[in-house]
Amino acid sequence: MSLIKLDHISKTYVLGDGDVEVPALQGVDLTVNTGEYAAIMGASGSGKSTLLNILGCLDRPTGGQYFLDSQNVATLDDNRLSRIRCRQLGFIFQSYNLIPQLSVVENIEVPLFYQGQSERRCRERAVALAERVGLSQRLFHKPNQLSGGQQQRVAIARALCNDPLVILADEPTGNLDSATGKEILALLDELNRAGTTLLMVTHDDHVAQRARRVIRLRDGRIASDHFN
């Protein structure tokens, strides 16, 4: 059974007073299996961000069906989508998106917090994950006391803390220098080898080469989909 199955997903944005319709996705069919590592590529405006938002249950498609772990999530309400994001998805952003006033462990804990887990269990898990991404010396630092690479590691630990079905990464190395970017990519490779499903949006060919599958979007459609 496939982990993610997009069935003719389309998304149209309505601008202004409903006069202008902008199609962002026009019938995307995609299947992703557990354990895959796929890069989604495309020029800006090709719809990759929209696709990632839909995959991440942050947005709902205007047409088509989206099965995540064989549950149709395209029609769920906001509350149910929040729950799916909370329990089944992990996010890594280009700009890390850590909460500035929280420490490293507190940032990692956030998804567990919304699962309603006990404080002690949250803390144990957060500390374990911080160690796994190599930040055991920085547990109580604030994000602004960390380098970009370290911040992204925190974000990765945060994405891992709820044991997600899939981690969605939006240009995870976009804000990093190439050396640090390589470290982060190495960490992602390692996670994938350990069984985590990864979907990564990038426009960097070198980054995409590390993924085992490259999906290219053009004008809201899948232009190519091949395995390296």
């Binding site: 991440g56 942050l58 906001d78 994001r85 998805l89 998106n97 919304y114 709820n162």
Partner: peptide, 15 residues
């Protein structure tokens, strides 16, 4: 932005 992060990480409107 913090609200956006929290929502993305699974906070519901109610949270």
């Amino acid at each position: 932005r913090e609200i956006g992060i929290r929502r993305a990480l699974g906070a519901g409107k109610r949270d």
